[in-house]
Design a protein around this nucleic acid. Structure first.
Lengths: 338, 338
DNA sequence: TGCAATTACGAAAACGTTATAGCGGAAAAC
DNA sequence: GTTTTCCGCTATAACGTTTTCGTAATTGCA
C-alpha cells in the first residue's frame, strides 16, 4: 500500500480532507466517533502524513540539526547520544553535520541550513572567537532557535550549555602542583576557543595561587594532526626545560603524550605527572592509568536538546540566553601518584 | 531578507515562476542570458529554494538516514565519519538514529521513516537473524535504496558492506594458539548477528585446524551492561577451568576484561593472552598494549554511502545486492607476547 | 518563399498537507 | 417562538516548488 494519502482516506470514509486532517490532529472540532473512525482506517492502511507537505504548509517541522567538529571523540559521541536521547523521545528527526574543525565548512553549513530544512540547531563551534559572525547572521536570517554546548561563542547572546571549565582546571592544576610539579604545561587547542580560554584561566590562577610563575611557553598549542602533535611533543620532551606536569585539555593530545613518553622512556608519573581532560573509557586501563577531568557529556547533550525543543515548542519558554553549567568530574589515577 | 521565494524573484525579474525555476535548475530551455540574470538576483537576495516544496513536488529529496546501534563506540563513530564524508561532498543531509541494540526501537524507526522523509538508508542492524522481517517490509512499502554495513542481515538480498570477519578471526585465533593457548574463549554478542557468527566460524576453524577441540562453553555471551559483564568475566576467571586466551569480538568487552584481569591480578599475557576486535585509539597505550583486529570502519562508511548515493541517483547503477568486502587489520602487541 | 523545426518563455496544474472561513442544524437563551 | 450559541463538518485557499503543455517568435531547410 505505497503512498496512500489523506484524499484517499477521506474518500473512503465519506468525509472531507479537512475533517480527516483535523481528526488526525486530534482537533476539538471533531467528534470522538469520527476521530475513531479516521484513526482506525489510517492505521489499517498504515497511513503516514507526508512530512514535506505538512512542513510546507505549517512552515515548520520536527527536524533539527547537530553541528559538531568531530564525532570520533568520546566527548562528542556521548553528547550526540544525549541529544538523540531526547529528540528520539519527542519524535524529532536529527541531522548530523561534522565540520572537522573547519570554519569554512561551518559557514557553508549554516548557509545551507538557511533553506529552512530544520526548526532548530545544536552547535559546538569549531571557530575561534573572532569568527562568530556567521552565527549571528544565520540567526538574523532565520530566527531559528539555537543552542550551543561546550564550545560556545561567548561573545554572542545565545543559550549555552557548558561545564565548569575554569574551576575544574584550577582544581586539576592545583593537584599537579601539590603532587610536586614546578613547571606544568597546558595542552591547548589551536583556535582561541572560549572553552579553552576558560581552562587556561583556571590553569593560570592555580599557578599564581601556588606562587608559581606563569610563562607563555607553558601553553602548548596542538594541531589536529596526530603526527604533527607527536613530533611537537617529542621535541618538547627532549628539550632542556622538560616539563614535569601536563594538563592535556583535549582527548587526542593525551594519547599523543602517552605515545611520546612511552617512546622516549619518560616515566609517568615519576618524570612527568599527567591529568587529561577527556571522556576516554579506557583511561583507567592505560599504562599508567590516566587521571582525568571528565565532562558530563551525555548530560550536556541532553540539556542542550531539552532546551532547544522547549524553545521550538515555545511552551512556557520565552527569551533564551540562559547558560546552563554542569560539573566536570576529577578522577585521580596513577598518572598523578605512582 | 527572510523567506524570499521564487514568486518574488520572478516578479522582480519580470519573468514567470516557471522560467525562474527552470533557470535555477539550469534547464536547456532557458537562454544563457536569462539564466545569468536569474542566478544573479538569486544570489543577491541569498535565495534558497524551499526543500519542502521542492521535495513535495519532486517526491524525492536529498536526505538520507543512518541507523546504527550505538555511537559511543569507535567503530560506529568512524563509520559515521566516513558516511558523512561522502554525503557532505554530494550535498546530502544526513539523519542519525540510534537503536541502542533494541529491536523494538529499530522497528519503530523504520515505521516512522515510511513517511517518506528520506530517499535512502544506511543501516547496521541491532537485531538477530530471526528479526529481519521489518527490513523487508520497509523495502516493500517504500522501495527505497538501502545499504547495510558491518552488522548485515545475511538472509536478505540487499547491498552490503562488510569486512572479512571469518578470515581475520581465523588468523587472530591461530595466533593465540601459536602463542601457546590451549583453551581460548570467544566473547560473543548476545544476539545471533551474522557478523558474530562469521567470527565464531573463524574461531572454530582455527581451533580445529590446530587440532584443538571446540566446546560450547568457549563462547561467552556478553551483555550490553558493563557491570554485568564485569561480574560474568570475574566468575569465569575465578573458576577452575580458567581460559588461557581470549578473542574479544567487541570493543566494550575488551575493556571489561582488562578491568577484571587487573582486579584479579591475572597477568596478561602470561596467564591469559588477548586479542580484541575494535578500533580503540588507545589500544597501543593500554597496559599491556592490546593486540587488535581493527576494522576499516571509516572506509566501510564511505563505501556504504557511495553505494547508496549511486543507487539513489541511479546513474549507471541498476540492481544492487552487491557485497563489498574490506579487509580487517591484525596488529600484534604485548597482550599476546610479553 | 513556404513550411517545419527549434528556441525561449508562460500558464496552469500538480504535490499532500493545514488553516481560515463558513454553513446547516440542534440546543440554549430570552 | 424567535434569536443566539455552539457543534460538527465542508469548501477552499494557501504553502513554494516542478513539470507538462502550449505558443509565439525565430531559425533551418529545401
Amino acid at each position: 500500500m505505497k503512498g496512500i494519502n489523506m484524499i484517499q482516506l477521506a474518500k473512503e470514509l465519506g468525509l472531507s480532507v479537512s475533517t480527516v486532517s483535523k481528526a488526525l490532529g486530534d482537533s476539538h472540532e471533531i467528534s470522538a466517533s469520527t476521530k475513531k473512525r479516521v484513526n482506525e482506517l489510517a492505521k489499517k492502511y498504515n497511513y503516514k502524513p507526508n512530512p514535506f507537505a505538512s512542513n510546507l504548509r505549517k512552515k515548520k517541522g520536527k527536524q533539527i540539526a547537530i553541528i559538531i567538529p568531530d564525532i570520533v571523540n568520546n566527548f562528542f559521541a556521548l553528547a550526540v547520544d544525549g541529544i538523540e536521547h531526547v529528540t528520539m523521545a519527542k519524535n524529532y528527526d536529527t541531522f548530523i553535520y561534522l565540520t572537522h574543525e573547519s570554519l569554512e565548512r561551518e559557514k557553508a553549513l549554516l548557509e545551507h541550513l538557511e533553506n529552512g530544512l530544520i526548526s532548530g540547531l545544536i552547535i559546538s563551534v569549531s571557530s575561534g572567537r573572532e569568527g562568530y559572525g556567521h552565527f549571528q547572521e544565520f540567526y538574523e536570517n532565520t530566527k531559528l532557535p539555537m543552542v550551543f554546548f561546550d564550545r560556545v561563542p561567548d561573545l554572542l547572546q545565545f543559550p549555552k550549555v557548558i561545564s565548569n571549565n575554569y574551576e575544574s582546571t584550577f582544581d586539576a592544576t592545583a593537584r599537579l602542583i601539590k603532587a610536586g610539579c614546578k613547571r606544568p604545561i597546558f595542552f591547548s587547542t589551536q583556535e582561541p576557543l572560549f572553552t579553552n580560554m576558560e581552562r587556561i584561566r583556571g590553569f593560570q590562577a592555580a599557578l599564581s595561587s601556588a606562587g608559581l610563575l606563569f610563562s607563555e611557553d607553558m601553553i602548548v598549542k596542538c594541531s589536529y594532526d596526530m603526527d604533527q602533535n607527536y613530533s611537537a611533543l617529542r621535541k618538547i620532551f627532549l628539550s632542556k626545560k622538560r616539563p614535569d606536569g601536563v594538563f592535556a585539555s583535549i582527548e587526542k593530545f593525551a594519547i599523543s603524550l602517552y605515545q611520546v613518553c612511552k617512546d622516549l622512556e619518560v616515566n609517568i608519573p615519576r618524570d612527568v605527572k599527567v591529568i587529561g581532560m577527556n571522556n576516554l573509557r579506557t583511561a583507567a586501563l592505560l599504562s599508567p592509568s590516566l587521571s582525568t577531568v571528565s565532562q558530563p557529556s551525555f548530560n550536556m547533550g541532553k540539556e542542550a536538546a531539552t532546551l532547544l525543543l522547549k524553545m521550538i515548542e515555545k511552551k512556557t519558554y520565552a527569551a533564551a540566553n540562559d547558560i546552563i553549567v554542569l560539573k566536570n568530574e576529577l578522577t585521580i589515577r596513577e598518572s598523578l601518584h605512582a
